[in-house]
Amino acid sequence: MRPETSTLLDQLHATLDSIEKVMDPQALAATVRELEATAGDPTLWDDPAHAQAITTQLSAAQAKLRKLENLRGRLEDMPVMYELAEEEGDTALADEELTDLRGAIESLEVTTMLSGEYDQREAVINIRSGAGGVDAADWAEMLMRMYTRWADKNDHKVDVYDISYAEEAGIKSATFVVHGEYMYGQLSVEQGAHRLVRISPFDNQARRQTSFAEVEVLPVVEQTDSIEVADSDVRVDVYRSSGPGGQSVNTTDSAVRLTHLPTGIVVTCQNEKSQIQNKASAMRVLQAKLLERKRQEERAEMDALGAGGNASWGNQMRNYVLHPYQMVKDLRTNLEVGDPAKVLDGDIDAFLEAGIRWRMAQQSADAAPSGQSS
């Protein structure tokens, strides 16, 4: 085995050891056994909501345990795989497996960094077109496709709550939920302004156009969050759902618009056929927005007391350049790739991982005593 390969395997063993200290496979196995026993109780489904919560927890715990066991087994097999490959005089397949294994272990390592109060939650994503006219509306729709493609590739269900279509092309805004554990923790690093530079497909003179779209990421609110919304504080308007070309459910007043009177926050939902379902979905988004507002106010108070750093990432966090050259560059992490098409098709894991590591470094720097580096 080549010395550099042996060194890399030692590093991966050390990384996986540290991951297992955090995730504790023995404790996970015990949790799986307990949840399996609970799930086997014939009376469990007498309370469907509780039963759903148990089965969801069981599925998540089983998936974590399987991933840990799979990575450990693959890592233990690598020396034998290289020994056989070297006997045959071709280590290409072994090298490919090692590269893939390294990526999987480093990706799981990033997950262990997600220890924030809401990181384990599902994510509500709001996308709004910004400066750039019709190109910005088209860009907002491209971003929505990027995130939904990423979710689809990673087997995460997406529920679209609302889309406001632009007149010529694209969307003015969209709200959707990405389901799954740690979706907020992973996707929250995408919050900010995304800038696109390209030859405009809407310009007869084929001129270069710069356009912007804003991405907002919120944690899904749970019953324990204590976000009370009084009925008297919310104005409810109903209207007919709409879509491009008259598509969608547009024969009844099923779409719902909620206006939170004390803050002026407006939320709409039209994806469901029932007005009641749309109102419930819109209320979840409204509560998520109010929770985020509460967090920002608390953060501002702490910052005023000198207890925290500035969490704002500025107005522009990533550039996507399609002309005159091909590049996607994150302005916070300096991660740069030369294949925008692949990124826009949902291949954003490298940006998510780099963003999480960057955020951890920022938090460590903010937590360090004045005059000390982290």
Rank of each mutant, 00 (worst) to 15 (best):
L286Y: 02
A280V: 02
Y182Q: 11
E222Y: 13
A94Q: 00
W313I: 15
M327E: 06
S364V: 14
Q247P: 07
E86C: 08
D155S: 14
T38C: 09
W150R: 02
E228M: 12
E336Q: 05
L352Y: 03
M360T: 14
Q326F: 08
V110T: 09
Y325L: 07
Q11F: 10
K279F: 04
A367T: 03
E96Y: 03
A365R: 12
H260D: 00
A288V: 02
A230H: 13
P42T: 10
V321W: 08
D225R: 04
R207Q: 09
V236T: 04
T268P: 09
I356L: 05
L58W: 05
A63G: 11
D77T: 14
S373T: 13
V22N: 09
M302L: 15
F351P: 06
E117F: 13
R293N: 07
M317E: 13
A60L: 08
L101C: 08
A94T: 06
G246K: 05
E292A: 15
H13L: 15
V267H: 00
I163T: 12
T91V: 06
D46S: 15
F212M: 05
D119P: 04
H194W: 06
I199T: 05
D24I: 05
S200F: 00
T55K: 15
D138G: 03
A367S: 04
A350R: 08
N204Q: 15
D46Q: 11
N310D: 10
K342T: 11
V337F: 00
I105W: 03
A51R: 01
A140N: 06
K67P: 13
V197L: 04
V220R: 12
I171P: 01
D152K: 10
A140G: 04
D10H: 15
E228S: 06
H13E: 13
A169R: 01
L261K: 06
V266H: 02
E87P: 14
E20G: 02
T38F: 12
T252L: 08
E83R: 13
N310T: 08
R318Q: 03
S164K: 09
R121K: 04
E214G: 14
D233C: 13
D10K: 15
M113V: 11
Q186W: 10
I171D: 02
V337P: 07
S248W: 06
A30Q: 08
M81T: 14
A27P: 07
A193N: 08
N310K: 12
L8W: 12
A255P: 05
D138K: 07
D225I: 00
Y165W: 08
V229L: 01
R74V: 08
V134L: 10
G338K: 13
G306C: 06
W358I: 14
Q223R: 14
S248L: 13
A49G: 15
G180E: 02
S241P: 07
